[in-house]
Design a protein around this nucleic acid. Structure first.
Lengths: 333, 333
DNA sequence: CGGCGTGTCTAGAGCGCTCCAAGCCCCAGT
DNA sequence: ACTGGGGCTTGGAGCGCTCTAGACACGCCG
C-alpha cells in the first residue's frame, strides 16, 4: 500500500479511526493496551501521518512563512538558523520562500505563504511597500526583521543601528580619524537607519558626514571604492553599510595599492563570517543575528496565542568587534 | 470573513463550486462571461486558494523536498538557487529542510518531508546511510546531489570529481610542484571521490600522494595547516577538499608568515564566492553548481512522470579557475 | 423529427484527518 | 439496587478542495 491511512491502522488494530488519531497525538486518555496495539499496527503497516490532511482538518498548519531575499548573504543564513531553532522548540516549522531579485518576487512570495495558510510570517529585510506588509498582517501575524513597519499589527526586530553606528564612529574617532566616508546601503533594510545613525554620530563629534550611494552588495562596495580613489581628498576611513560592501571596497582598495589599515581604515557591519576570516579581518558590528531570529519567533508565537493588538519593537544591542582593518589615522592620504 | 472558500465565491457569483474550481485552474471549458463573474466575485471577496486543501484533494503536492545540511556553506545556497529556478519553471515548489549537525537530523528531515507528502526529494550531500536513502526512494522519487547512491531507484547528480582533481594536479604539476598535499574532506559528500581522484592523478604523474584528514570546514583546513607547519618537509602546494578548507588553511599559513603563492600554492574546490573574492583569490574548481540543481529537478520530474525504473547519473563537468593562490613551485620550502 | 455531438456547467463522492457529542462500562456512593 | 460520574472509545460531521459522471441546451445532420 502506497500510503496507509489511519483507517487502515484502525482496522489492523481493531479499533476506531478516532482512537488511532488520539494515539498519534499522544493523548493521555488511551489505555496502555490499546496504545500498544495501535502503535504496533502502525509500525507494521509503515504508517506515516499525513501532514496535509492534518493541516486541513485542524485548521492550523503550525507553519511559519519565512521570507528571505538572498540566501547568498550569510546574514540570512544566520537569521534562518536562529528562526529555525526557535521555531522547532515551539513545534513550528519554517516554510522558506526566497524572492527573486525583483520586488514583485517578494509579493508573490507573500501570496504563496498565504495560500499555504501559514500561521504567521517572518519577513527578513523585506523590500516591500509597507502597505503590502500591513495588508498581510490583516490576515496573519507578521514580524519584520531588519526594518521597522509602523503599524500596530506588525512587530519588528531590529538591530539597534543607532548604537551600532555610534560605536563605529566613536571607534574611528578614537583612532584619530576625522574624515570618515560612509557607503550607503541603498534600499537594503537597515541601510537608512545606519545612514542616519552615521550622520548623527558624525555631527555629534563635530565632523562632516560624507556619503556615497550604494547597496548591500560586494560590487556596490567596489564601485564606491573606485569613486573614492578618483577623489583628490580621500577619507582616512571608510564605513561600509554592511560587510559585503566593505569587502568589496577592500578588494578595490588593495588592488589599487592602498594598504588597510595603514593608508585607510575600513569598517563593516554585520560581523558575518567574512569579517571574521583572518584574511579579511574586518572591524565590524556584531548584531547577534540569531538572537533576532529567536526574538522574531517569540513575538510571533505570542501574537498567535494572545492576539495582542499593539505592536512591539525588539532592539537587539550590537557590539563592535575591532579587527585589523582599522588603525590610527594616517597623517595624509 | 477570515478566509472565503470556493463555496463563498460560487454563491456570490451564482455558480457552482465546481465551476469556480475550473476557473481557478484556468480550464478552457468555461465561458468568458462566467469566468469574468467568478473572477470578480473572487476579487471582491478577497478569495485566495487554499493550497492545503488542494493538495489533499488532488493527491499531489507539487512540492519537492530539499534537504540541505548547512546553509552557511555557500555551496548549498547556490545549489538551492538552481533547484529553485528549475522547480519554479515546472510549477513545483521546493520545501526546504535543514538538518541539524547530527546525522539523526537528516533522518528526521526525511521523515518530515514524507509526512508532507512531497512529490519527490532532492538530497544535497546527505550524511545518511545509503539504506535510508533507498528506503525513502521506495516511497517517492529521490535524487542525490554530490554523491552517488547505488540503487536503480535513486538518481544522482555529481560533479565529475575525477576530472576536477585531475585538473588541479595537472595545473600544479605544470607549475613545477612535486609535493602536493591533499586535505581530505572527511565524510563530506564528494570527499572520497576527490581523494581518489587526487591519488590517481598523483600516481599518473609519478608523484607520491600525501593526505591529511579533515572535513569540509574552515576549521578543519586551519587544523590541517597547523599540522603541516610542524613538519620538517613541507609540501610546495596544498589542495583543500573544498574552498572552506582552503580558506581555513590560507588563514593559518599567512598568520605563520608564509606567503601564498610564493612559499606555498593553494587550491580549493567549489569556486564559491569566497574563492572569487579578490582578497582570497583562490585557484579552485568550478562545478557549475546551479546546473547541478537544475539537473536534479529534471531527473526528478522525469521520474515523477515516467516512473522510470533505471537509475541515471548526471556528471557535471568542472573547470579549473586559476587565480593568485597558485604559482611556480618554490625551490625549497 | 429523432439522434448526436459539443460546449458548459453541476452534483456528489471522496482526500485523510480532527474534533466534538455521545455511548458504554465499571466502580463508588447512598 | 440505583444513580452518577469518570475513563475510554466510537460515530460522524466537517476542513476546502478536485475530479468523474452526467445533465442540459443548442445546433446540425440525415
Amino acid at each position: 500500500m502506497a500510503h496507509p491511512t489511519m483507517e487502515d491502522v484502525a482496522r489492523a488494530a481493531g479499533v476506531s479511526r478516532a482512537l488511532v488519531s488520539l494515539v498519534m497525538n499522544d493523548s493521555t486518555n488511551v489505555s496502555e493496551e490499546r496504545r500498544r496495539r495501535v502503535l504496533e499496527a502502525a509500525a507494521q503497516l509503515g504508517y506515516r501521518r499525513n501532514a496535509v490532511a492534518r493541516q486541513l482538518a485542524s485548521r492550523r498548519t503550525r507553519t511559519i512563512g519565512v521570507l528571505l531575499n538572498d540566501l547568498h548573504n550569510p546574514f540570512f543564513a544566520e537569521v534562518y538558523d536562529g528562526l529555525q531553532a526557535a521555531a522547532h522548540a515551539l513545534g513550528l516549522r519554517p516554510l522558506l520562500t526566497t524572492a527573486s531579485r525583483r520586488s514583485e518576487g517578494d509579493i508573490d512570495a507573500i501570496e504563496v505563504m498565504l495560500e499555504h495558510r501559514v500561521d504567521g510570517m517572518v519577513l527578513v529585510s523585506p523590500r516591500l511597500p509597507p502597505a503590502k506588509i500591513v495588508a498581510a498582517s490583516d490576515i496573519v501575524p507578521v514580524v519584520v526583521i531588519g526594518s521597522v513597519v509602523k503599524s500596530r499589527q506588525v512587530d519588528s526586530v531590529t538591530n539597534d543601528e543607532h548604537e551600532g553606528t555610534r560605536l563605529v564612529v566613536r571607534h574611528l574617532v578614537d583612532l584619530g580619524h576625522q574624515s570618515i566616508t560612509h557607503i550607503h546601503g541603498g534600499a537594503g533594510a537597515g541601510a537608512l537607519a545606519r545612514w542616519r545613525g552615521y550622520e548623527a554620530a558624525m555631527r555629534g563629534n563635530h565632523l562632516v558626514p560624507d556619503v556615497i550611494p550604494g547597496d548591500f552588495t560586494e560590487s556596490a562596495g567596489a564601485e564606491a571604492a573606485r569613486l573614492l580613489l578618483k577623489r583628490k581628498n580621500r577619507p582616512t576611513a571608510i564605513f561600509g553599510a554592511n560587510d559585503m560592501v566593505a569587502v568589496g571596497a577592500l578588494d578595490v582598495l588593495e588592488s589599487a595599492g592602498l594598504r588597510v589599515p595603514d593608508d585607510v581604515s575600513l569598517v563593516g557591519y554585520d560581523n558575518n563570517f567574512l569579517a571574521r576570516m583572518h584574511h579579511i579581518s574586518l572591524t565590524s558590528v556584531d548584531q547577534s543575528i540569531d538572537q533576532m531570529g529567536r526574538a522574531a519567533i517569540e513575538l510571533l508565537e505570542e501574537r498567535i496565542i494572545t492576539r495582542r493588538q499593539t505592536s512591539e519593537l525588539r532592539l537587539v544591542t550590537p557590539t563592535l568587534v575591532a579587527r585589523r582593518s582599522t588603525g590610527p589615522a594616517s597623517v595624509l592620504s
